[in-house]
């Protein structure tokens, strides 16, 4: 369980949207073998009677009131855009499901 194949790593890279070189995939496959063995130690004590902590603070119900506050100007919003057109972010063609 604590080992990954090169294809597994390639699939993770695909999920994470990183175009990795063959060399990188090789290296990571090796490294993951070591790292996963080390981190798998958590399973030694993570028994079913232990509750999970997803957050260090036990806060609940933190809300804001439904009030409009000023937005950025479109110039500010688009200030970091690699490309823009007609006050919109210009991005390469989207392959995928029609939304």
């Amino acid at each position: 369980m604590s080992s990954l194949s090169r294809d597994d790593v390639a699939n993770l890279a695909r999920l994470a949207r990183i175009e990795m070189t063959d060399q990188e995939l090789e290296n990571l496959t090796t490294e993951f073998g070591v790292i996963l063995n080390a981190v798998a130690r958590v399973q030694e004590v993570a028994t079913t009677d232990v509750a999970a902590t997803s957050h260090p603070l036990a806060l609940t119900n933190i809300f804001r009131t439904d009030v409009v506050i000023p937005s950025l100007t479109p110039e500010e919003a688009l200030s970091g855009a690699p490309a823009s057109e007609d006050q919109r972010f210009r991005v390469p063609q989207i392959l995928g499901e029609e939304a």
Binding site: L12, A16, V42, T47, V50, A51, A52, T53, S54
Partner: peptide, 29 residues
């Protein structure tokens, strides 16, 4: 990149409980 992929793996279906879920329990301990 190493950490992004490691995290992607730890959260992926089928491994969540063994990795991320277990880590959260350790956090409790």
């Amino acid at each position: 990149k190493r950490r992004i992929l490691l995290g992607t793996y730890a959260l992926s279906s089928g491994y969540y409980d063994a990795y991320y879920g277990s880590a959260q329990k350790v956090r409790t301990l």
